[in-house]
Design a protein around this nucleic acid. Structure first.
Length: 430
RNA sequence: GUGGCUGUAGCUCAGUUCGGUUAGAGCACCAGACUGUGGAUCUGGGCGUCGUGGGUUCGAAUCCCAUCAGCCACCCCA
């Protein structure tokens, strides 16, 4: 026998008990997105390397070490990768399918798996799932506020109230270059006090100096020029508008002048939802912002857009920490039990008749009736229908109400109407 | 990718310090008893190459090395 094959590192199985919580989170996401007029789309999990490279930024860690490459069958084939995030694919799909021909903005969302070759940790997996919400085609600050409000509505629908929202503006092509010069001018004399990473960032990606967590770098940023003080009139106006819209919507937020995105095509609004229960390093529930420069980078017409990505696993984890996971639901409401051997066919027929009314499973195993009843009791089924050979011949069952213990004989054909009349949510779950 | 901690039954763990017969407990699972036919109780049962591979030794769950996996902190982000 070969060695047991285990799942790859950093990926995990979501079993039925936990999957119920996922369904809750996903249903809330669909509900929130639809209520804001966002439509569900699906984009491929594999995308061309170039899309991901340019969509994420070639100098980022994601590109440098976290990309999963798809092994090409021939060297000449296009290089494909597993998507590490959804936004670039969403924008590609928007243009490629002509959604830019409709009146803007396109309000789109998707839920799906993303892949990053990180070092696994609780709340951080190599395959993880995101809710991704994008409003593409319009520069209005109202859309920034809208996607934030959507995210907040989603979290609130799940009973998550204790998050914090941090907001910042990082300007645009008109004002950021000048600000970056100011930032560099501030940091250059302090270069020797910076960590090695930040010494490099000083010239390549100075915004990143602001959110460096190295103890030696942190104090220096206190006196650094703040971009909020150096926004161009348009960006300043947009920032004010986003903030006033959030206040009007009753969404509490905190200004974090050190919240940044490292890439050039991010503009103006950036934000992040956090939750303390997620613990230190992995406390981010969702993050996003405006990315007016992305479409050009991937070869399409300049088009403003804004959105966010949220971690499904992290939301589920937070619900778990709060003890708010939904109670495990029995797999069925009715179990049809064979009292004796060779009853598979009649048991299946009884179940078939009952299924239009209630979720029904069968147990025609050779175990004793006591064992089957014990299993049914533990599983929490509402009803049990028992039949032996003689009853099968007469087309009747003993129907037992597991709560009251009451039991009566009835004809198979009576099952659906009788059980259907009982108040029982036959809703679709997970 | 860097550093640290940890891997024993399906799950939670004891045993490891200081090597010594057939490696333990609870939960869960299966069978039976008890109420014809239930969640409790009782009895019995498989619980396992002690993560994997190699080494030291008369002898390794225990010591050493490697490897894989999980967790924690970085890096980064969801």
């Amino acid at each position: 026998m070969p060695a047991p094959i285990r799942a790859a590192r950093g990926v995990r199985d979501v079993l039925p008990a936990e999957r119920a919580a996922w369904s809750l989170v996903e249903r809330a996401a669909h509900g929130a997105a639809r209520r804001f007029g966002y439509q569900l789309i699906e984009t491929p999990i594999i995308e061309p390397l170039e899309l991901v490279e340019r969509g994420v930024g070639e100098d980022t860690d994601v590109i440098a070490k976290e990309i999963y490459f798809v092994q090409p069958r021939q060297g000449s084939e296009q290089r494909l990768v597993l998507r590490p995030e959804a936004t670039a694919g969403m924008v590609r799909a928007y243009f490629q399918n002509g959604l830019n021909q409709a009146p803007p903005p396109a309000r789109l969302y998707t839920i799906g798996a993303m892949f990053r070759h990180d070092r696994p940790q609780a709340g951080r997996y190599r395959e993880f799932h995101q809710l991704d919400v994008e409003a593409i085609g319009e520069a209005s600050a109202a859309l920034d506020a809208e996607v934030i409000e959507l995210a907040a509505a989603w979290l609130r629908a799940l009973g998550l109230e204790d998050w914090t929202l941090e907001v910042n503006s990082i300007g645009d092509g008109a004002c950021r270059p000048a600000y970056l010069e100011l930032l560099k001018a501030y940091y250059r004399p302090l270069r020797d006090q910076l960590g090695p990473d930040c010494q490099r960032r000083l010239e390549t990606n100075p915004l990143r100096l602001l959110d460096c967590k190295e103890p030696q770098c942190q104090p220096l940023r206190e006196r650094a020029p703040r971009i909020a003080d150096h926004l161009c009139p348009e960006c300043a106006r947009a920032f004010v508008e986003v903030r006033s819209l959030l206040e009007a919507a009753g969404i509490p937020y905190r200004l974090n002048p050190y919240l940044v995105r490292g890439l050039d095509y991010y503009t103006r609004t950036v934000f992040e939802f956090q939750h303390r229960l997620l613990g230190g390093a992995q406390n981010s529930l969702a993050g996003g912002g405006r990315y007016d420069g992305l479409s050009e980078v991937i070869g399409y017409r300049p088009t403003p857009a804004t959105g966010f990505a949220a971690g499904i696993e992290r939301v589920v984890l937070t619900l778990q920490e709060l003890g708010r996971l939904p109670a495990a639901e029995p797999a069925a409401e009715l179990a049809v039990l064979a009292d004796g051997p060779d009853l598979a066919a009649p048991v299946a027929e009884v179940a078939r008749l009952a299924r239009p009314a209630v979720r029904t499973l069968t147990d025609a195993s050779p175990r004793s009736l006591g064992a089957k009843m014990r299993a049914a009791g533990r599983a929490g089924y509402r009803w049990v229908a028992i039949l032996d050979a003689a009853e099968a011949e007469r087309r009747v069952v003993r129907l037992r109400d597991m709560d009251s213990g009451q039991q009566r004989e009835l004809r198979w054909e009576e099952l659906p109407s009788l059980l259907g009349a009982e108040p029982s949510p036959a809703g679709v779950a997970g």
